Simulated scan of single mutants.
Amino acid sequence: MSLSLIFDMDGTLFQTDKILELSLDDTFDYLRSLDKWNGATPIDTYREIMGVPLPKVWETLLPNHSNKDRELMNDYFLKRLIENIKNGKGALYPHVREVFSYLKEKNCSIYIASNGLTAYLHAIVNYYHLDQWVTETFSIQQIESLNKSDLVQTIVKKYRITQGAVVGDRLSDINAAKDNQLVAIGCNFDFARKDELAKADLVIDDLLELKKMLPNLSK
């Protein structure tokens, strides 16, 4: 029976931190140019909520702004993220390619399930040529509920997955695994929180650790 691994993107495969502050600063500079923001860019607030869908991000960062303003900033932020990715300012986490190659050699299926938007995810996958290993990339945009558990359920049903794991750094990833009877592997990376990782079945500090875990996941 083949094993399936479903990976989160931000903070798990992609070092979002390298382009996050840059893109967010660009976006709030634009908001300042419209005379709709004073003060510093709320980067710390964003770090606290990393992993939630972008519509919820803007509700948090711009609580007193109109939905029209939030949509405008969402679109501008997405544009800046994609441009920074294409300009090579981001990076994958160490060993992503090595681990993906190993998993494919072991006949594992690889998927990506992310709260990121489709265009953003495609920019990363295309720039780093991840599609040579990844069967399909799924965005939270594909489901109405904006719930990571429902997104993973979509993958499980489409590919009839009965054995596998969800690999991610936040509670939404851990819950998505458990809600779909998969192993929850927490990544103790940049945006991870100890209280959330405590709920995972397994915790890794480096993606390379997945190679050693694979035999046990297959049992």
Rank of each mutant, 00 (worst) to 15 (best):
L103T: 02
F77V: 01
K212Q: 15
I85Q: 01
K148C: 09
I174D: 03
H122D: 15
G116V: 02
P42N: 02
S101K: 10
F189V: 13
A123C: 12
K178N: 14
K18R: 15
P215D: 08
F28Q: 01
F14R: 00
A119R: 09
V156A: 07
A119D: 12
L13E: 06
A165M: 04
E105L: 12
E98D: 15
K219Q: 10
S139A: 15
L207Q: 01
C187P: 01
D150P: 10
G116N: 10
L121M: 14
D17F: 07
N38E: 05
H65L: 03
V52D: 01
S218K: 13
S172C: 10
W58F: 14
L207P: 02
M9R: 02
D44T: 12
D205R: 07
Q181H: 14
Y159V: 07
A177S: 08
V96M: 05
S4M: 09
K219T: 11
Y93C: 07
I143P: 10
T135C: 11
Y128F: 14
Y102S: 09
L103Q: 02
D75A: 09
K148I: 10
K89E: 15
L103V: 03
E71C: 04
E71W: 04
K86V: 10
T154C: 15
I124R: 03
L61R: 00
H95L: 07
F191D: 02
L207V: 04
S149K: 04
T41F: 05
L24M: 06
L117V: 07
R32V: 11
C108W: 04
I85S: 04
A198N: 10
K56I: 12
P63G: 05
V96D: 03
I112V: 15
A119P: 08
S23T: 13
I110T: 08
V203M: 11
W58H: 00
I204K: 05
L3Q: 03
L13K: 03
K148E: 08
S139N: 13
E21G: 11
L214A: 11
S145M: 12
D75H: 07
K194W: 06
R193H: 13
A40S: 10
L72T: 01
K36R: 06
Q153N: 14
D169W: 03
C187K: 00
T162M: 11
V134N: 12
K89R: 15
